[in-house]
């Protein structure tokens, strides 16, 4: 007789459980009706941005200043007005374009890779490639857009990773905006390299130089996101960091911290292991 005995059951991993549970609870919520605390309505923001560009005054993106009307920090975040020159920690920051430098425009967008198109079929079907970040660390990251959502496709080490779609109008108070995907790439020596990746888009009306996103990892390294402008003028940011996490239970390690500076106001968010470190949609964590 053919042996049709399956292997023993195994429990769902803690990280996957946390991620799926969070996704389910997010799905049960009604569409958020609350006002964007970082971004005023689009028309007003566009006007403010125009004025800011002309006068150097970067105001309006925080609901009109520091009076706090409706702009209180979300749970788990803190907002601290800071001078732009002290937008984030400097120790160990990977060199990237200096604050205030113009964000480079993307070169002509190459055709979307077949691997990304395939991987996105069940994530954001028929999405169009908006921009491709210059190759870094032997990998390529591209942004794909459909309607009001976007996804990230990263190809490196012979593996393609696509992210859960996010809205193009980002909520910078929401830690979900800054979630990272995680991959564990085997090395020749038998160990693993951990690859963390996140990407997002600048809110409408914000100026290129006003946004700074930095991730600080358990090994103490801080990685600053790079930015690029697509052919529609949207500014995208991407952070990728590859390191040896030393193995072991990562949930027992310090969490990944995100520092977001926009118009001189700095927010700090903490990524929860599992829930916020498994942004990928096409493979496990």
């Amino acid at each position: 007789m053919t042996d049709a005995t399956p292997p023993p059951d195994q429990p769902l991993g803690d990280q996957a459980r946390a991620r799926i549970r969070a996704e389910l609870l997010a799905a049960t919520r009604e569409p958020s009706a609350r006002a964007r605390r970082w971004v005023v309505p689009a028309a007003a923001a566009a006007s403010v941005a125009l004025v800011a560009a002309l006068t150097g005054w970067a105001t309006g993106l925080l609901g009109g200043g520091h009076d706090g009307d409706g702009v209180g920090p979300a749970t788990g975040t803190s907002a601290t007005p800071t001078p732009e020159s002290t937008a984030g920690p400097d120790d160990g920051v990977t060199p990237t374009p200096t604050d205030g430098d113009p964000v480079p425009s993307a070169p002509p967008t190459p055709p979307g890779s077949a691997a990304c198109v395939t991987a996105l079929e069940y994530v954001l079907r028929d999405a169009e490639q908006a921009v491709v970040f210059p190759e870094e660390g032997g990998g390529t990251t591209s942004i794909w857009v459909k309607g009001g959502r976007f996804s990230v496709c990263d190809e490196r080490g012979g593996r393609t990773t696509v992210h859960q779609p996010l809205p193009i109008a980002p909520d910078l108070d929401d830690v979900a905006t800054f979630r990272v995907s995680s991959r564990y790439q085997p090395t020749e020596g038998g160990g693993y390299r951990t690859i963390r990746l996140a990407a997002g888009v600048l809110p409408d009306g914000a100026l290129d130089a006003e946004l700074d996103v930095r991730y600080t990892f358990p090994d103490g390294h801080t990685e600053q996101a790079t930015k690029i402008t697509d052919h529609q003028g949207r500014v995208w940011w991407r952070m990728v960091y590859e390191y040896d996490d030393g193995g072991g239970n990562e949930t027992a390690k310090p969490p990944i911290e995100v520092t977001v500076s926009l118009s001189g106001v700095r927010k700090e968010l903490t990524l929860e292991w599992g829930t916020d470190t498994c942004a990928q949609a096409n493979h496990g964590c």
Binding site: P6, P7, Q15, S182, P186
Partner: peptide
């Protein structure tokens, strides 16, 4: 693509059960 066991597999060594289940699925 290059074979890349995921983190869960690294911890719990699920490769064996995957191989076994694929044998079973082939059988049925």
């Amino acid at each position: 693509p290059a074979a890349e066991p995921d983190h869960a597999e690294r911890v719990t060594d699920r490769l064996g059960s995957t191989a076994r289940m694929r044998e079973v699925l082939t059988a049925v």
